[in-house]
Design a binder for these strands. Sequence first.
DNA 1: ATATTATAGACCCTATAAGTCTTTAAAGGG
DNA 2: CCCTTTAAAGACTTATAGGGTCTATAATAT
Lengths: 132, 132
Amino acid sequence: MKFSKATNYALHTMLMLFTVSPDKPIRVQQLAESQDVSPTYLSKILTKLVKAGMIESISGANGGYRLSSRKDDITFLDIIHAIEGTASLFECDFVHGDECSIQAIMKEAEEKMHGYLKKMKLAVLAQQHTKV
Amino acid sequence: MKFSKATNYALHTMLMLFTVSPDKPIRVQQLAESQDVSPTYLSKILTKLVKAGMIESISGANGGYRLSSRKDDITFLDIIHAIEGTASLFECDFVHGDECSIQAIMKEAEEKMHGYLKKMKLAVLAQQHTKV
DNA sequence: ATATTATAGACCCTATAAGTCTTTAAAGGG
DNA sequence: CCCTTTAAAGACTTATAGGGTCTATAATAT
């Protein structure tokens, strides 16, 4: 199992929006070029972030994508969930009597990861980036 | 991204070996039946656990699989790594100047999960099972 | 010797990731 | 009002990995 490439594109794009220009919209063309990915494919990914309310899109000339007003709250987990979905990483389909104790442990393990990713805000990372 | 079904089979099989019979070998046939999976497929999975030194296999009549001598040390992470491999869940292929800060965070997140899975021993879970 | 067990490896099928292409909708500037 | 520029939507294709079968081989007990 692996995080998808789409998640990597999404994270990098978000960081780019923060560092390059938090307010003025940036065209997908430009965002795509710096990651060496096709604009149409990246736009598909970014549409998910729009639907999740993390960025806004502006059509037409001088349009593009820009961070939404709640930008400072956006966490790594938010982005990952927007792209990968929110289903558990581990699902036991077997029919045991009670809840599967293995699944309980796996769920808890996933929670440890989530707990960390929930604390990691893009805004903070972006700040460290521009500072250096 | 998801943990594979194979990982679920592996974890359940290990737990079964602990609870049913830690010493006497059990045929893959029996292990497979209780999980409703084909014996040939399960054997492929179990061979990975053999190679990882977690269980032993005995060919021939009255053969099967049984726990290895280091059984009490086996953790969830050991089993997961044996089945899924040990590659990172997140790999950033881009060529930034220095190490990718996004990847650094993702790696750390994975570490949180690993840290927990490393503490979880099958033997302990099995004990709780038989106790109840 | 024979029956019983695991191992190996070739093979297949399916679902999902990854990506392309084309059309449509929205917005701005003249 | 027209034209250009931008994103959105959706159909489609391709690549990869998961999940699984099948058959032949090796090991072992009786």
